[in-house]
Design a protein around this nucleic acid. Sequence first.
DNA 1: CATAGTACCGTAAACGTTTACGGTCGTCAG
DNA 2: CTGACGACCGTAAACGTTTACGGTACTATG
Lengths: 344, 344
Amino acid sequence: MTGIRRLAQHLDISIGTVSRALNGRPDVNEETRRRVLEAASELGYVPNQSGRSLRQGTTNIIGFMMQTGTEITGQGDTFFMSVFDGVQTVFARHRLDLVALLCSSSEDPDDYLRRVVARGFADGLILSATQRHDPRFEFLAKQKIPFVTLGRSLTDVGQPWLDLDFEGMAQVSIDRLVARGHRRIAVTRPHDDINLGHLFIDRSASALAAHGLALDPDLVFSSLPNEAGGYHVAQQLLAMKERPTAILLVNETIAIGFYRGLSEAGLKPGRDIAIIGRHSPQSHFLSPSLTGFTLSRRDLGIALAEALLATMPAFSHFYPDAELRKVWKEELVEGESDAFTLAT
Amino acid sequence: MTGIRRLAQHLDISIGTVSRALNGRPDVNEETRRRVLEAASELGYVPNQSGRSLRQGTTNIIGFMMQTGTEITGQGDTFFMSVFDGVQTVFARHRLDLVALLCSSSEDPDDYLRRVVARGFADGLILSATQRHDPRFEFLAKQKIPFVTLGRSLTDVGQPWLDLDFEGMAQVSIDRLVARGHRRIAVTRPHDDINLGHLFIDRSASALAAHGLALDPDLVFSSLPNEAGGYHVAQQLLAMKERPTAILLVNETIAIGFYRGLSEAGLKPGRDIAIIGRHSPQSHFLSPSLTGFTLSRRDLGIALAEALLATMPAFSHFYPDAELRKVWKEELVEGESDAFTLAT
DNA sequence: CATAGTACCGTAAACGTTTACGGTCGTCAG
DNA sequence: CTGACGACCGTAAACGTTTACGGTACTATG
């Protein structure tokens, strides 16, 4: 005698009542419910998930799909860890189990997702590292499995998304640098597959255009989103005949490598070049201090989770006015790295 | 009509035969099997996992438990990503699904694990961030769920473990530095809860003792395992009246912060102080180049997976001679950072 | 008192598999 | 011809839940 049956026998009531008591149904005497709950915790009874899933057609699992190897995601891994943390706190409230589905870099994300979904693994999915054109969206829409993406895409099947406000950053940064007299402003961009990169470049160009300036293609640096990428950008920049006087480092972690590249050449951020970047936990230890944008990754995760739940029928009533699509503003923290100004 | 029943009806054979065919049982005609396989892929049939799990009492899921927030783990997150990658390739061979169970930093890992196990989530577990005394071990042993740990612990329930060879690193490094004339050698150490840290310090001390030297307690620096930690160590070290002439940076990522801390004070690795560290993908961009230990994280993951499978009855025959307990040697790559020598 | 209504509970079917068991058919040796 | 045996397949039970349905006992209302 196992499981719920054992518990029922122990209490000398039917398994139906036990189940109802545990699941918070209204049609069970409160005194009975109390006894059931007590006995359950005493005997250490926990409902078998396979049984529930089979009966209910639901797994109580939410998958957060990420990719190992971060060369393409545009953020360091710690970024996702923090976001994940936020997501988890929300799902824990609903007794949903969150797991990370890490797609190996050697595997096609599309195939991987197909496998996961076919097995009926999760009730809902969070997708990150979304591509500019992402075939996964249509697949998921066809399978009618709820999902939300971290990152906009040109593919749109009506799903919720949250994204970073690279456009706003471009606008604010360009305006700020131009006001300080800069004319030759460089930008870095994430991988070409990331839609956000295009939005960033486009906005940078139009912001410059508003000041009567053009974005010099030679000043657009593709960069791996890590320290090595930043170091490489610095080397490219230093090798130029006509160097830019300012640069936007849009990827989080590259500032560290960029700083190092500069300092090896004897250049100093804020004195010889103006830098605006994005803050990460590491960037606070940069010197001179970085002028950069910052956001609460954890809050982003919370919003992501709420957007997903809002689209799942079983939970939507908890989040009647969740924001389903939102660009996530970042706040500019002033430091010394963009102190370098030019006479106008 | 759904699932296997639909497939059976379509082929006009019984569901039992279909199941046997799909699961590779011997007692089914090869021609029949071929037809079943073909129809399955044609109709896109995939066995329902809940059904299988319920019947077989097994989930086909392996959980890799990590913790978000890396302040305690001693490695940057990218470390685990790479290890995970290796683990995944092994499990994929056996059609086991690997998921990452990320325990939020705000939650007690012990409770978290208990929840996961109680729900019958996984057939096996990989534990990382093992504590010096780790209550999870006994719990898992009692529940008879197979697991393997990344990191030794004083708690021992006979489970397999793999671990880094901090002791070997201490020995090699100390010998090397002493041979170059160093007498005041500093070491960093990971969090006190990590057993590996104690092994490292102990071996460092005994290696020094073998040369008639003592480990000065003032030269043992506790450090967060990240850039900030390294930066902080540098600051502490620079503030000392009597500075060490050499230092072992045992955590992977702290070298970057340490370098920066030095350079701000105008000191240069390999010229003003000898440094031996550990390599990470980022460390290759340090200048002067780091003398440090290196290992294949992916291979480590592979070994970890094989050790786990070797203890699972259903798979053990695939890995008859897997190494169940092993310290994972790292190789010393010579760079410029320990070029600084003293007259003896 | 009769009736309706309510609160609570038991029964049993259903979810989609796997697998032990037994049955059929053909083959082959005696 | 008979019996044993092997190859293959169908049947049905079992895994642990949830939940629709119906039943009982009690209360309230006329």
